[in-house]
């Protein structure tokens, strides 16, 4: 098990490193950003001076080596716009993203688990059809459109909730709903199939035959035993939630990492883009790491592979 953990941990480092490398070269291939900060008719000397100042006139491999050695120390350079530490800016936005992602995750689980349990227990009945139908439709609704619809109904029509921004609990309601809905469809499907697997087992039939009350049968016997696969699948799915968070943040002007990344891509503020990619890749890699360890713990076959 320890071997497996160490191996997977090294993989985390490789993943984050490669993600940064690819983005670094993509950015440099797309041209150096100096021209974006100077007027189009700037004299050649001024452009050269600016490139020298920012170090863009050096050979690419030198720039890359320089980037790697400072990135290892957590230095991604300064924002090209605000001259503040790029990583610092990204980290300052992280709590807002976590707040949104965690509340959406909790809400999604609170809706999806009962729905999935009901759908599985009442298999092939109206409940199941509705449950399955919801997941099919839910997967076809893009989160940004759902966000727009919520803004339209609750902010534009009913005028009961703010359409965007952050700070108060009221501001959290619509973004949380949007992001949660994004995951409810998939979490319901996970729960349903995990429950169906357990409900097929002999001990459930035996328990049922010996007169265990339905509620107790579901909660104690079936759900408890299907929780581990559900948790694992949910953990493996958190990357999708993370991707959805970026879009949701933009729709609701939520002051998180996703919106910052979007703005920096628009402004071509590359130190922030690199720091943002670093943080997102790191979080995602850690989530996958934990999910894999969990999965290996539950399912010993994986460890051997």
């Amino acid at each position: 098990m320890l071997d497996f953990i160490i191996k997977r941990f090294l993989q985390v480092i490789v993943v984050v490193f490669l993600a940064l490398t690819v983005v670094f070269f993509l950015i440099r291939l797309a041209g150096d950003p100096t021209t974006l900060f100077l007027p189009p008719d700037a004299p050649r000397e001024q452009i050269e001076e600016y490139r020298e100042l920012l170090g863009y006139n050096r050979p690419l491999y030198v720039q890359y080596g320089d980037f790697v050695s400072s990135a290892v120390q957590g230095d991604f350079g300064e924002s090209l716009r605000s001259q503040e530490d790029a990583l610092g800016i990204v980290l300052s936005r992280l709590p807002a993203t976590f707040q949104l992602a965690i509340s959406a995750l909790v809400l999604a689980l609170l809706i999806a688990i009962p729905l999935g349990v009901l759908s599985a227990y009442k298999r092939n009945t109206v409940f199941d059809r509705i449950g399955v139908g919801l997941t099919v439709v839910g997967q076809a609704v893009p989160s940004f459109w759902l966000g727009l619809l919520l803004i339209f109904f609750f902010a534009a029509q009913l005028k009961v909730l703010p359409s965007g921004g952050g700070g108060t609990p009221v501001h959290m309601i619509l973004p949380t709903l949007t992001l949660a809905a994004y995951s409810v469809a998939r979490f319901t499907r996970f729960t349903r199939s995990a429950m169906l697997d357990v409900l097929r087992k002999d001990y459930i039939r035996t328990a049922k035959a010996s007169g265990v009350p339905t509620m107790r049968l579901i909660m104690r016997y079936a759900l408890r035993n299907s929780l581990i696969p559900i948790i694992t699948l949910v953990a493996l799915d958190l990357g999708v939630l993370l991707g959805g968070a970026v879009i949701t943040e933009v729709v609701f002007s939520w002051p998180g990492v996703g919106r910052l990344l979007m703005q920096s891509l628009m402004n071509r503020d590359f130190p922030i883009v690199l720091a943002g990619v670093f943080i997102i890749a790191l979080i995602y890699a850690i989530i996958n790491f934990v999910a894999d360890i969990l999965y290996a713990y539950v399912n010993p076959q994986i460890r051997v592979k």
Partner: peptide, 10 residues
């Protein structure tokens, strides 16, 4: 191990 939509976006 990088979210699909973010990768495409970047």
């Amino acid at each position: 191990s990088f979210p699909f939509i973010l990768l495409v976006l970047v």
